[in-house]
């Protein structure tokens, strides 16, 4: 089978254009998903599609550690005023622990083996109801 692409040895102008297109898609997505500063942060913990807990990070006064034992690979979530991280996890890969602290509305920590997502949402209104679980 002959293909024109296989016979070339050097990149063409169109390759550059294609690379530019991929870069543009990345930048557009980055802009669309950019996290925002927020004074009132809520951390939601979603395990296998169900919200198991929500924490009002703005109302915290000191560090809190929460262990999620019902996950396939048990993990410990560390909450501090204005930020949250997964401190330790029994999952393979440890991508969630390596994500580190998140502190902006729109940021997430994902633990794929556990199917767990911690997401931060912001609010401009301090009087919203927060469920603490």
């Amino acid at each position: 089978m002959r293909s024109p692409a296989a016979d070339r040895r050097r990149p063409t102008l169109w390759d550059g254009l294609l690379a530019l297109l991929v870069a543009a898609a990345a930048v557009a997505l980055l802009f669309f998903l950019r996290p925002a500063e927020s004074n009132f942060l809520t951390a939601s913990v979603v395990l296998e599609g169900e919200t198991i807990a929500q924490y009002d990070l703005s109302a915290l006064t000191g560090p809190v550690a929460v262990t999620v034992d019902q996950a396939d690979y048990p993990l410990t979530i560390q909450l501090e005023p204005g930020r949250v991280r997964i401190a330790e996890s029994a999952c393979p890969g440890l991508d969630c622990v390596h994500t580190g602290w998140i502190s902006l509305a729109g940021q997430q920590i994902i633990c794929l083996p556990n199917r767990l997502v911690i997401s931060l949402t912001g609010a401009s209104d301090p009087d919203f109801d927060a469920v603490t679980g």
């Binding site: 692409a5 296989a6 070339r8």
Partner: peptide
Amino acid sequence: LVRCPFLSLFGVSIA
């Protein structure tokens, strides 16, 4: 893309 007459394998691989 490999059939596209304007691209080389660089573009094909990036895509």
